[in-house]
């Protein structure tokens, strides 16, 4: 029981064992293998080196490799766990695992906190939120006056920054999110529940003889 004989041959460097990745994440072995099909598509779109670079990530997100976007940069930065400027398969699976509908809520809250804590200070600062708001306005061509932006920030910090020190701590973030559950919508990707049907070709490329589902 629990034995898997792997025929792990001809795999890209960085393609971690699907059984080990499934054990570490909420994905089954089949789902990890289906994700490898997606990973192969994205990682070979510009340079076929078995790694996703920023250009490839942007191309997959926007169908445009040159589109600069602060939020996509933040997500890429967090997926690039080893800080090498590229995302390998293991990091891709571990990061996407947080977005699975069954992933722990705490993991989703922590990922979102890091996303917004742009300077990695352990706090979400007002200036960071302002910078993100302005980036969103530019992206969406929405126009809001400075006055309105400041009032949105005032209102947000009034609710979230309960100790009134001008920044949002992890505890304050968790409290704020629990009162505003819609903020966690972006942290769940329903697609991940059906990943094996989206990429059925994983069956033909499976490196694992016995599939644990």
């Amino acid at each position: 029981m629990g034995c898997f004989s792997s025929k792990l041959t001809n795999q890209s460097p960085g393609h971690e064992n699907p059984v080990a990745l499934a054990a570490e994440t909420v994905f089954s072995v089949s789902e990890v293998e289906a994700l490898y099909e997606l990973f192969k598509n994205i990682s070979s779109s510009v340079i076929d080196d078995g790694l996703i670079n920023k250009e490839e990530f942007q191309l997959a997100l926007f169908k445009n490799s040159q589109k600069e976007n602060l939020f996509a940069d933040r997500v890429f930065y967090l997926f690039d766990v080893k800080r090498r400027g590229v995302i390998d398969f293991g990091d891709f699976v571990r990061s996407l695992s947080v977005f699975h509908p069954n992933a722990p809520r705490e993991d989703k809250m922590e990922f979102a906190f890091k996303l917004y804590d742009m300077d990695s200070t352990g706090y979400i600062e007002r200036e960071e939120v302002k910078q993100m708001l302005i980036a969103l306005l530019c992206e969406s061509e929405m126009k809001l006056s400075d006055e309105v932006i400041e009032s949105i920030l005032d209102k947000t910090f009034e609710e979230a920054d309960t100790d009134r020190d001008g920044r949002i701590s992890r505890d304050e973030w968790q409290n704020f999110v629990s009162h505003n559950p819609s903020l966690m919508k972006i942290m769940t990707l329903p697609y991940l529940r059906d990943i094996t049907t989206t990429f059925p070709s994983f069956v033909f490329n499976s490196a694992v003889d016995d599939i644990a589902t």
């Binding site: 997606l38 994205i42 997100l61 997500v75 980036a135 992206e139 969406s140 309105v148 979230a160 505003n180």
Partner: peptide, 24 residues
């Protein structure tokens, strides 16, 4: 938008819509 909190607005960004990764 003025009635929304900043994070609700930010989460509308296309850059945070990772569902696009799954589009073939």
């Amino acid at each position: 938008p003025a009635a929304m909190n900043a994070f609700e607005l930010i989460s509308m960004s296309q850059g945070l819509n990772l569902g696009n990764l799954f589009e073939k």
